[in-house]
């Protein structure tokens, strides 16, 4: 593993790392719901504060998070600008033909930016602090109720974990093949977008073929070890709820409660 792509597990020991993956996934779901339901800056402020505390407890350098935000910077600026100049409002500061900047527009764009950034930050916090294996184990455990309606939860999470497992491998392969084609004079990083996409065809085809071979080999290896022969699979690592998880759960509950309170009593004075 030579190159580390963003969003990958960051190996340090911390409170957040040691939490049960289910609690973290639940936290993420609740958090995202709250972000999208929230209509006031105060609610987002609470979310940001909670996230900041969680981040500090994760002992991951803040620059890592900045890099994650940088990945969606273009998207954020793009949507913010569009909203800024098209959002209808009453207090107009500046207008030109059909474009106008209003107080409401500014507030709305700011809200949107905070929302998007929080979204990226909280999902990166999950992937930085949870190994792919723990993540899929957690998802499998959360989805267990679906097995009552005969939904193949285990197969689904297996597909997920294999996909996650192969991301670094495929990116390494892609790097090697890119280098091999570059050594043969491929112009991968020159020219306009169209010629760049064209130049990538030799890389993509070679990568596709090698990933098919990989999949076939993996299938053979799994079958050779009798995968799917026994009815009930046992786990190597069992998930257990500890005091940390209960603590984190209480924080989540508090977060929901405050969000609901803000929705029910929008004028609630703090």
């Amino acid at each position: 593993m030579k190159d580390v792509s963003f969003g990958q597990y960051y190996p340090v020991k911390s409170f957040v790392h040691s939490l049960d993956p289910r609690v973290k996934i639940l936290f993420l779901i609740v958090f995202i719901t709250v972000i999208f339901v929230a209509k006031e800056f105060l609610a987002l402020g609470i979310c940001a504060a909670v996230l900041l505390i969680a981040t500090l407890f994760s002992r991951i350098p803040l620059t890592k998070f900045l890099r994650a935000v940088r990945g969606i910077l273009f998207l954020v600026l793009f949507t913010a600008t569009l909203n800024l100049i098209f959002y209808p409002g009453e207090t107009v500061y500046w207008s030109w033909k059909f474009l106008q900047i209003t107080k409401e527009g500014i507030l709305f764009s700011a809200f949107l930016v905070i929302r998007l950034v929080l979204l990226v930050l909280c999902s990166s916090l999950l992937t930085y602090t949870t190994t792919p294996v723990a993540l899929t184990d957690g998802i499998e455990s959360i989805l267990t109720p679906l097995t009552w309606i005969r939904f193949p939860v285990h197969a689904l999470t297996l597909v997920m974990s294999i996909a996650l497992r192969f991301i670094p491998k495929l990116s390494e392969d892609a790097g090697t093949i890119m280098n091999a084609q570059r050594a043969r004079g491929a112009k991968l990083d020159e020219g306009g977008p169209v010629s760049r996409i064209k130049a990538f065809v030799p890389v993509l085809i070679a990568l596709l073929i090698s990933s098919f071979r990989l999949a076939e080999e993996l299938g053979d290896a799994m079958e050779a070890r009798c995968y799917g022969c026994s009815k009930k699979r046992t786990k190597y690592k069992k998930l257990k709820i500890g005091w940390r998880d209960i603590l984190a759960f209480l924080v989540i509950a508090g977060l929901i409660a405050s969000a609901v309170l803000l929705r029910v009593f929008p004028q609630f004075p703090f």
Binding site: D173, T176, I177, N179, A180, Q181, R182, A183, R184, G185, V201, P202, V203, I205, A206, I209, S210
Partner: peptide, 16 residues
């Protein structure tokens, strides 16, 4: 790169 040719490990993976 024209002057220095490079054959990678398992070069058959670069065929496309």
């Amino acid at each position: 790169r024209r002057k220095v040719g490079m054959v990678f490990q398992y070069p058959e993976n670069q065929l496309f």
